[in-house]
């Protein structure tokens, strides 16, 4: 279903420009290739962090919630 991972390529180009005898600026340009849209989306997902505010807000909300009531055993059989 998914193409082999060997199809993934990453090309990196680095240019080092000497600005003075004591300092150098490095500019890097990375070009990625994705074999499928899913790979690109997966990459984007992994770069996307959940804002910490979500967890903190969830803590406050759930602190005011009663503990969830387990489903009765006889309902689990239905």
């Amino acid at each position: 279903m998914k193409p082999p991972s060997q199809q993934l390529r990453q090309q990196t180009t680095e240019q080092v420009t000497a600005e003075s005898t004591h300092a150098a600026t490095t500019q890097s340009e990375t070009v990625r290739e994705f074999a499928t849209p899913e790979e690109m989306i997966r990459h984007d997902l992994l770069q996307t962090k959940v804002p910490g505010a979500v967890g903190k807000r969830l803590e406050r909300t759930l602190a005011a919630e009663p503990a969830p009531v387990p489903k009765p055993w006889w309902k689990r059989l239905l």
């Binding site: 990625r32 849209p37 770069q47």
Partner: peptide, 10 residues
């Protein structure tokens, strides 16, 4: 292929 310059605009 899907190519892109890796920046935050992805």
């Amino acid at each position: 292929p899907l190519r892109l310059l890796e920046t935050k605009e992805l």
